[in-house]
Computed example of a mutant assay.
Amino acid sequence: MKLLRFIILNILILATFLSCSTESVDLSNTTDSLDTSEVYEKLDILYGSSANQTIDLYLPANRNSNTKTVILVHGGGWTSGDKSSMNYLKDLIQLEIPNIAIVNINYRLADSNNPPYPMQIDDITNVVNFLKSNKERYSISDKIGFIGVSAGGHLSLLWSYAFDINSNVNMVCSIVGPTNFTDPVYLNNSNPELQPLIDAFEPNPTIAFLEEISPFHQVTPNAPSTILFYGGQDPLVPTSQGTNLRDRLIALNVNHQFTLYSNEGHGWTGLNLLDTWTKLKVFLINNL
């Protein structure tokens, strides 16, 4: 069975590089009814005025008002990336957990004039509000989960811990996402590859600001169930980013799961990727 899943996983990952879609449609003002007995998919739905404020929506067949939604948030150091990089996860969820809705999001990318925070958090808020305003038309619940990778992991954790004012988030997953910008490894950084990522938020930030944008400092006992995956040889996100948040979740008695792949870097393939999906799938089923 593990071999079969490994083969399927790699086929799906390959498919993400061989396929693309150019469909673009704004459904924000559409009111026509949808057949809930059928699968419904639309790409590049606008949720704001920027070209980067788009989502891909995947609704399962036989959905109803109890159908929950998982939101996928791509990485790219807050300054680059695209939702297409998350298509392999979308494919796996559709294949193995076909009864949940999926929203794969793009968000405005940061540059020298537009820092990631609060811009990208505002974009996630807009996505959540868009889903809420359309939940009757789409026949979905207002209960959601997040899966984020790298910068997307950071955004997913931060929004879930600090901005989910209506307690809609049931679970959040971070795969190699930064969690604490007051970590001494970041404050005393000497890695030239890493520094531009740190400076993306603010060149000379205060400690108070760094705490404001750090999930580690924003998490509370009411945080949603959290699953974390990190690499022990990651040059961008040191191990302490995962282990310190894990310890904080333990202290706060927050339901969580933590996996450290000691020999992996900022992402992995093969059997460890299969292990990540196997654990994430069970966590999604049990907590979303």
Rank of each mutant, 00 (worst) to 15 (best):
G81V: 13
H74F: 08
T67D: 11
S80A: 15
V70I: 14
A61R: 15
K83C: 01
G48F: 10
E41G: 00
Y58V: 15
L57M: 13
K83N: 02
S37R: 04
D35T: 01
G76V: 08
N64F: 08
D82M: 04
K68M: 12
N66H: 04
Q53M: 14
L34S: 02
K68F: 10
I55S: 09
G77Y: 08
L18W: 08
S24D: 14
L43M: 07
W78K: 13
D32I: 09
L59R: 06
T69K: 03
L46G: 10
A51E: 15
T54M: 10
L46P: 13
S24V: 08
G75D: 13
I71Q: 01
P60G: 15
N87I: 03
K42M: 03
S49Y: 13
G48Q: 09
I71Y: 02
Q53S: 14
T69V: 12
T31F: 03
S85K: 14
K90A: 09
D44C: 11
S84W: 12
S49T: 13
N29M: 14
S84N: 13
T31I: 11
A61E: 15
S50G: 06
L18S: 12
T79G: 05
S80K: 06
S84L: 10
G76S: 11
S49G: 05
S85F: 14
S33W: 04
G48P: 10
S37Y: 00
G75S: 12
P60H: 09
S28F: 05
S37T: 06
S50C: 12
D56K: 13
G81C: 09
Y40G: 00
K83E: 05
V39S: 07
S65D: 11
S49P: 05
H74K: 00
T30P: 00
V70L: 06
K90T: 15
L18N: 00
S37A: 03
K83Y: 02
L43I: 02
T36E: 10
S28G: 03
T22G: 14
L34I: 05
V70R: 00
L34W: 06
N87C: 06
L59K: 07
S80M: 10
S49F: 11
T30C: 02
R63K: 15
D44K: 07
E38W: 01
P60R: 10
D35N: 04
L43R: 07
W78M: 06
I45R: 01
N29H: 10
T36W: 01
S28Y: 03
C20A: 15
T31N: 10
K42T: 01
L27P: 05
I45L: 02
G75L: 09
N87Y: 07
N64I: 13
S65W: 01
S80P: 01
L57T: 03
S33H: 01
D35E: 05
T69F: 06
E23H: 02
I71E: 05
N66Y: 03
K42R: 07
R63E: 07
C20R: 13
A51Y: 13
Y88E: 12
D82S: 07
F17Y: 12
L57N: 11
S50V: 03
E23Y: 02
V25L: 13
D26E: 06
S24M: 07
Q53A: 13
S49D: 15
S19N: 11
Y40V: 01
Y40H: 00
L46W: 10
S21W: 12
L89M: 08
G77N: 10
Y47N: 03
Y58E: 14
G81I: 09
N64C: 05
